[in-house]
């Protein structure tokens, strides 16, 4: 029902929908992310009012193009259902629109994705590192960041 509603509204911008082990998944084009989230939040039949999680996956080892997936987990308190939305972002243009205007928690989640994967969120008020320190080079959760790489801690700047 949820997936049909999304397909009905966004037509070709929804690339794929499927269900795996009971999780509903919608794969979409990244350009519509804000419209889709606004729709999911405000449509009374869907009513996804909580952004549970926002993260990314780097598919470098699978040699997939586009390289990254941004993964959103939504939950509806009133309807008690969940949905996973995935949007692909390529290495050459690692940007996607920010959701900070829709859910304030996206602020910190997006900062973490920027920190770990180096994906820029357009419209984010202050996109800076959150877990690593300023001055850290590279984005550690990318698959091409070596796990044994060490960087001397230079301390926070301020």
């Amino acid at each position: 029902m949820i997936l049909e509603k999304i397909k009905e509204k966004f037509l070709d911008d929804v690339l794929e929908t499927y269900e795996f082990r009971g999780d509903l998944v919608a794969v979409i084009r990244k350009e519509i992310i804000c419209d889709l989230m606004e729709f999911l939040k405000t449509n009374p039949a869907l009513d996804f009012n909580i952004l549970m999680d926002l993260t990314a996956v780097d598919y470098l080892w699978q040699e997939r193009i586009p390289r990254f997936d941004i993964v959103y987990h939504l939950y509806s308190l009133a309807k008690n259902h969940r949905l996973r939305v995935k949007a692909s972002v390529d290495e050459k243009d690692p940007t996607i629109e920010s959701l900070t205007g829709i859910w304030p928690i996206a602020d910190w989640f997006e900062r973490e994705v920027w920190d770990m994967f180096g994906i820029k969120f357009e419209g984010h008020p202050h996109l800076k590192r959150i877990l690593m320190y300023q001055g850290f080079e590279g984005h550690p959760l990318r698959k091409d960041y070596p796990v044994t790489k060490r960087q001397p801690l230079i301390g926070p700047v301020n």
Binding site: M116, R129, I130, L131, M132, L141, Y145, V147, P156
Partner: peptide, 13 residues
């Protein structure tokens, strides 16, 4: 609020 002082790369490990 500034966090990250106990980051031990759980997800990477």
């Amino acid at each position: 609020v500034e966090i990250g002082y106990l980051h031990r790369a759980f997800e990477k490990s």
